[in-house]
Design a protein around this nucleic acid. Structure first.
Lengths: 179, 179
DNA sequence: ACAAACTTTCAAATAAGATTGAAATTGTGT
DNA sequence: ACACAATTTCAATCTTATTTGAAAGTTTGT
């Protein structure tokens, strides 16, 4: 099998995998293409190779830059912009971890802020209830608060753990040890 | 704010978060509802509370069981099936990790199997090329192989690391230490 | 064996998300 | 200031994933 076929196979596969990683097929394909290109590519080259539109190329390239998975390269004396992917898997992983922490963990913490500040009390009850009903209600309130507390402390720990992992993996010593 | 409002807020938020975790909105909402229910719920109760169809309820409940995030409960003397969520965040995390490893990591390894078995050689060339071109081609082949190798060893390490984390978190000692 | 209660299936409808393509905008050299 | 190349935007369109709802299937008690 020739190099170009292998590259194409890789791009296809990376595109499929991307979808299960919450990344759109095209974004993953653009990333894959840049991962296996030995030199930076222009937007036009990407458009031609993957048969996508200018608009899509632009959008996906911007998103990849946002994730810090690729960067713009400007060649002196040239007007076109070129794009080049970070090729170190450790660096890629760190950047994906950072981005996902931002997108996935922070919203949880924010949501819990909201839910936790509300005052849960049985005082609002309008109806006369039996002792059993009131106790059941109190039990439910307690359980709900515990669940929220559990999620909150979990999310906080996860955030700290991620921090540690990211920082640790940045250390040359740890990296060498793992490699 | 009353308990039911708080629960609803949580369910809504969990649903939104689910989408960025590659879980459908409804599946996440069903999960959230069961997380904050102090007793198991029947399919009908879930359908009514979330205003979803029977079909959707059935499908999403099945998926959650598949992920081992909820389980069926049969009450003696009752025909209906009830559903109850695992409520320990550590257990939830382990199960999600297992499921995601299966879905996300294994396909990568499988794809690399394919790409790596192909023989990359410059022998197929039909055209006469300059020495420089041949050298460039060889360099590209080398780089491509290195990239594949990097991804492969990364994926393997990630799989092992996940294993270690899952196993470690199952240990009561580590769990207590982290808590 | 039947009816009632409940669950599952699946083709069609819907909703959510991604892509296109044409037009607008930006930047560069003359 | 103009022309040209490149980039960006965005409403319309297309794709894909999810949900629905009605019908079929299952299980249980009589």
């Amino acid at each position: 099998m020739k190099l170009d076929e292998a590259k194409e196979k890789f791009i296809q596969a990376w595109g499929v995998l991307g979808t299960s990683w919450g990344i759109s097929r095209t974004m993953a394909q653009v990333h894959a293409l840049l991962l296996v290109s030995s030199q930076p590519l222009s937007a036009q080259e990407i458009i031609d190779t993957l048969s996508i539109s200018q608009g899509s190329a632009n959008m996906n390239l911007r998103a990849l830059i946002d994730w810090q998975l690729i960067e713009k390269i400007v060649k002196i004396g040239e007007r076109k912009e070129y794009f080049s992917a970070e090729k170190d898997m450790w660096e890629i992983t760190r950047r994906v971890m950072r981005e996902r922490r931002k997108r996935e963990l922070e919203p949880i913490l924010k949501m819990l802020e909201d839910v936790k500040t509300i005052e849960l009390s049985e005082k609002d009850k309008k109806e006369i209830e039996t002792k059993e009903e009131i106790e059941q209600k109190n039990k439910e309130i307690k359980e709900f608060k515990e669940m929220m507390q559990q999620i909150d402390s979990f999310a906080n720990r996860a955030e700290k753990a991620l921090d540690v992992m990211i920082k640790a993996s940045e250390s040359k010593i740890v990296e060498r040890f793992l490699k």
